[in-house]
């Protein structure tokens, strides 16, 4: 569906230093030979720190930017060569911008966008009816967009991007600034879209929960290159997946000697009056063994195993790759 081969994109930034006359120009390489491919029906999440090249990639894929090197095809077309035909087949949601006519109800925008994409009115009405139901738009569809909350607006944005039923959907930081229920609704909807209609979804985000809830594949972009490409479990392995066991102790006598970690690779991270925390590398030591250790030698009131939070995981990865 999407094939990207050694894509290169450079920007010239000119900055005027305070107090100096001349502008300083320098070239920044936003993409430095990025390659990857996406199959039909994939949900791919792009992650990476700010300035890594995520948005640049989306902009190239949606035909807005021309790359300086490399090639890419989306559904067999080169996006920037035949922009108008290309954009008929994609839907794009930019998290911080709007597609909708600000002063009018969203339903008017839907109608106009339908005409713009050449969707027959009957077909448009059916699509809108489905979207209204699935995104729960009925309550505010007739309110001018400027009066909607961000969550309501994003649901309308999503609907607007789907009026022409594109087989590919680009979501550029769609959950930014949303409240929790709106985030959940948006993720559930996108997942359903992929499951039921087989829509290919490309998503950029800083919110790892988006990735965990949606993406079957994670692509870590840094310094304009692909640093990691695989599933979430793979990403955990890559980052060094340490798990934690939190033991809440029953009141009473404690055997300090028995509390020492006796398994190879097990570390005691915290020891307090009522709680012990152990950690270990999940690739070397099984959770079952650790549980057995805890149940055998301690008197736990409660046990819980925690994976490392995804945010921490990617931060460690960014740090490792120096991005």
């Amino acid at each position: 569906m999407i094939r990207i081969e050694s894509l290169v994109k450079e920007y010239t930034v000119s900055a005027r230093r305070p107090g100096r006359q001349s502008r300083e120009r320098r070239t920044v390489r936003a993409l430095d030979g990025l390659s990857m491919s996406v199959a039909r029906g994939d949900v791919v999440g792009f992650i990476g720190p700010n300035g890594a090249g995520k948005s640049t990639t989306i902009k190239i894929l949606s035909g807005i930017l021309h790359p300086d090197g490399g090639t890419c095809t989306v559904a067999g077309r080169v996006p920037w060569k035949d922009r108008i035909e290309h954009v008929r087949g994609i839907g794009v949601v930019f998290g911080q911008r709007t597609q909708l006519w600000w002063d009018l109800p969203a339903v008017d925008s839907f109608e106009l966008l339908g005409d713009m994409y050449g969707v027959p009115p009957q077909r448009r009405r059916e699509t809108v009816a489905v979207l209204r139901r699935e995104l729960d738009l009925d309550a505010f569809l007739d309110t001018p967009v400027r009066q909607l909350s961000l969550g309501e607006r994003m649901r309308c944005e999503l609907a607007a991007a789907l009026i022409h039923e594109p087989p590919i959907l680009f979501l550029d930081e769609p959950t930014i600034g949303l409240d929790a229920p709106s985030k959940l609704a948006l993720r559930a909807f996108a997942a359903g879209l992929n499951r039921e209609r087989g829509t290919t979804v490309i998503l950029t985000t800083h919110d790892m929960d988006d990735i965990e809830a949606l993406a079957s594949r994670v692509v870590l972009i840094g310094k304009g290159r692909t640093l990691f490409d695989g599933d979430m479990a793979g990403l955990r392995r890559e980052a060094g997946d340490r798990k934690r066991l939190v033991v809440d102790l029953a009141r009473g006598r404690r055997d300090e000697q028995a509390e020492l970690p006796s398994l190879p690779g097990l570390r005691l991270e915290e020891r307090s009056a009522s709680r012990l925390v152990y950690s270990w590398d999940a690739s070397n030591l099984g959770t079952a063994e650790v549980m057995a250790f805890a149940a055998g030698r301690l008197e736990p009131a409660d046990l819980s195993v925690e994976s490392r939070p995804a945010e921490e995981l990617v931060s460690a990865l960014y740090a490792r790759h120096g991005v």
Partner: peptide, 14 residues
Amino acid sequence: RTGNFDRLLVRPLS
């Protein structure tokens, strides 16, 4: 300035 010009470019119209 706001980047909203991009949204015109992702539509199938000049």
